[in-house]
């Protein structure tokens, strides 16, 4: 299982095409012909990763916005970011 460390530098894949639709952000991976719909926290994470952030920096940003402890937030992020990376939506340095 992929595990992110707090100093990992995260950024979104700028090659993705994106559009806003109602409350949703829709992404298209033009190479693969795959689509993703992001809502709520997922959408907010995508927006924050427009410029690179460390894993812990992202947690800090999210706890300001959502009623969540840093520990719970970090735990939820692990799974979500791993999926993003798997789908090619995320760069990790």
């Amino acid at each position: 299982m992929r595990s992110f460390r707090s100093e990992d530098k995260l950024s979104r894949n700028q090659e993705m095409l994106s559009t806003d639709l109602d409350q949703e952000t829709v992404l298209m991976n033009i190479e693969a012909g795959a689509y993703y719909g992001l809502e709520g926290p997922a959408q907010s994470i995508w927006e924050k990763l427009e410029s690179p952030l460390t894993f812990s920096g992202l947690v800090d940003e999210l706890v300001k916005e959502y009623q969540v402890t840093p520990e719970a937030c970090a735990a939820d992020l692990q799974g979500f970011l791993a999926r993003m990376e798997e789908e090619g939506l995320l760069h990790v340095e």
Binding site: L17, T19, L21, E24, V26, Y35, G37
Partner: peptide, 28 residues
Amino acid sequence: GMDRVVYLLGNLYRRRYLQGQDTQGALM
């Protein structure tokens, strides 16, 4: 929902011509 975007892009004329255009972001 997002089905609308998926169908729109799926029905582009010669949609393989989209990739590589400098208008691809604007068209999305």
